[in-house]
Amino acid sequence: MLLIDIVLPGLVLGGMYALIALGLTLQYGVARIMNLSYGESLIAAAFGALTLYTGLGVSPLVALLLAVPCAVVLNWLLYRLLLARLMRRGKDRGAQEIDSILVTFGVLFAVQGVMLIAFGGQYYSYSYLSIPVVVLGTTLAVNRLVALLFAAAIGTAVYLLLTRTRVGTAVRAIAVDAGAARLVGIDVPAMSGFAFACGGGLVAIGGVLVSMFLTFNASMGVVFTMKALVVVIMGGVGNVLGALVAGLMLGVVETAVARLVDPGLTLAATYALFLAVLLIRPTGLFGRAAA
């Protein structure tokens, strides 16, 4: 049946989009840093998983235990060394955002350059858990289902952490108004750095999981950055559940366009959807009205 053939693979694809967008939700939604080098972190984690799996035979799911702490530390350093300075320098949020875009733009090229030297421009993939299962008459791969489950679990966990814990509340306070958060005794730079680093950890999870079923190369990061951005903005900046729903929606739309119109137009469909959301609801499908 055509509908199920579109919706199920679409949801699975969307689960992946939601997964890769979760980290950006924290980094942009909370730490207010538009990290354009986000996709590069994702690809770097994917290369890490690839190296561990093909070189040492370490399962990608075990590799997470190594990749996530590394990513957290590296992102924290990125924040402390570069971004925190810009946050202090910027006069207002607008200036801070522009500066952070520009500087992470440079980081994008630097990281990409390092990966190009290490791995060259060719495409990589490896096979892990690529066992077909039939769900409702549609064939899906187990590794993609695992990614979907992870996306749901991590999304829920992040949501609960943000809404049910003290740290999460502090982080949300910063997202709403960093100036006022400082007044009620929240250490804004430290918490922002923490949120940024956590976002980096989440992107590493995304990268490792994505590497199980996608072919990737060193210069593909920007595609993931754009997809993640589309999802974050569609879901409403800083809105974790919104990102989850928006990711699923994007997956379904892309699958539908590929099946019904032309596979060559999926990227165009992504951007068209993105531009439409920006124009009609710049605060996102589930976002609040602009402050």
Binding site: V103, G106, V107, G113
Partner: peptide
């Protein structure tokens, strides 16, 4: 690409 990136960061 690396040099381009580093220059960009330094300029900003």
């Amino acid at each position: 690409s690396i040099v381009l990136g580093v220059i960009f960061v330094l300029i900003v």
